[in-house]
């Protein structure tokens, strides 16, 4: 077995363990948190701060890298290493860091504008390369820090400051996009469900390679209530299609099954034979079924899959690169500068 294979599914294997148990307090920085009161980011921050101790990693080996936007202030509030960078570029910066330092647990914090608009290119390339990164994409379907313009995940016809007659662009579905880039780990969760959020983070951290976690996050100033249907006890259980590996894909009232045309469809759970209901296989090598699942929230948000769409092991970029370096040394020996400079055709003048 090559060293790369042995690392699959062991995202934390190379990262030093903490000597003693940690608590949430260990991960809080001394900086005052400055998001708008009521922002969904608070819930995510608290969930992350209380989740990190259970990873049992040395705090100094954890790095949070962010771009620009409300969510990208996140690293300042965590007592780990952190790099608040520039708009859209966090995946690129994190790629350089993670590729040269396999002993670090590197987390990218980004938003829908940061990751999918200005940084779209870096995101898809990070996903296809499969660098050992955990990308948390806070999706509130609006630009917050620039005060309320529509974002690449805003629904068509969105009335905002920059689109007084309604936005014209078709939105991205971040899950579909990530699956299209053949990301190995793709999941969706929601800011208000701490238990689910943390369970997804746990799986993401354990995955070696790039994991993308879309977190539905409420912007109570510019797009309040965007995900209320998923939070309101009256509608929540009906709308939410839970994705759990090995379990039938159902909500309280609906079920997913194969359609006659070869696709998948959502039907009333009541009238459907249990055996017909699609059983979720997150480890399916081919991403097409996961992609089909990712389309179920469109167009009307009538039913929304939540959970891990895909979790498939493939060698991570940083491991493969480390392997090439090791192979080069094994085959040719460690580089010697003097010999390198004197390689090729030389001649001596006496």
């Amino acid at each position: 077995m090559s060293s790369t294979e042995s690392l699959n599914g062991k995202g934390l294997a190379l990262i030093p363990r903490a000597d003693a148990a940690q608590t949430m307090k260990d991960f809080k920085s001394d900086q005052e948190v400055r998001w708008c009161p009521g922002c969904g980011d608070y819930a995510i921050l608290a969930a992350v701060q209380s989740f990190l101790p259970e990873l049992g990693l040395r705090r100094e080996n954890i790095v949070f890298v962010s771009g620009i936007g409300c969510s990208s202030r996140f690293p300042y509030y965590l007592n780990t290493y952190g790099f608040h960078s520039i708009h859209g570029r966090a995946p690129a910066i994190a790629t350089g860091l993670a590729t040269s330092r396999p002993d670090l647990s590197v987390w990218v914090i980004t938003g829908d504008g940061d990751a999918l608009s200005i940084g779209g290119n870096h995101l898809i390339h990070a996903l296809r390369r499969n660098v050992n990164l955990n990308i948390l994409l806070f999706n509130n379907r609006i630009y917050g820090l620039t005060k309320g313009q529509y974002s690449p995940t805003s629904e068509i016809g969105k009335i905002t400051k920059s689109t007084p007659m309604g936005s014209l662009d078709q939105p991205f579905n971040p899950i579909s996009l990530a699956l299209g880039a053949e990301a190995g780990f793709v999941a969706r969760t929601i800011d208000s469900d701490r238990k689910h959020l943390q369970s997804v983070l746990r799986e993401a951290a354990a995955h070696r390679g790039t994991s993308l976690v879309e977190i539905y996050q409420n912007c109570n100033i510019f797009n309040d209530g965007a995900f209320d249907a998923l939070k309101d006890p009256a509608t929540r259980d009906e709308i939410t299609l839970r994705l759990e590996h090995g379990q039938p894909i159902v909500s309280a009232t609906k079920a997913v099954r194969r359609a006659a045309d070869g696709g998948i469809e959502v039907v009333d759970r009541a009238g459907v034979d249990e055996a017909e209901i699609l059983v979720h296989d997150a480890h399916r090598p081919d991403p097409s079924l996961a992609f089909a699942l990712s389309r179920l929230d469109a167009p009307a948000f009538d039913h929304v899959p939540i959970g891990i769409f895909r979790s498939v092991d493939r060698p991570s970029y940083d491991s493969l690169m480390a392997e090439q370096l090791a192979t080069a040394v094994a085959e040719k020996g460690e580089g010697r500068l003097d010999a390198l400079l004197r390689s090729g055709d030389t001649w001596e003048v006496v």
């Binding site: 890298v65 350089g96 330092r101």
Partner: peptide, 26 residues
């Protein structure tokens, strides 16, 4: 590579310098 040199052909010029800066941070 036997000198421990990591070369990263990035998706664009911005990612090239971004990755280099990320590596420098490390």
């Amino acid at each position: 590579k036997r000198f421990g040199v990591r070369t990263f052909q990035a998706e664009d010029e911005i990612a090239g310098v971004g990755a280099a800066l990320g590596a420098a941070f490390g």
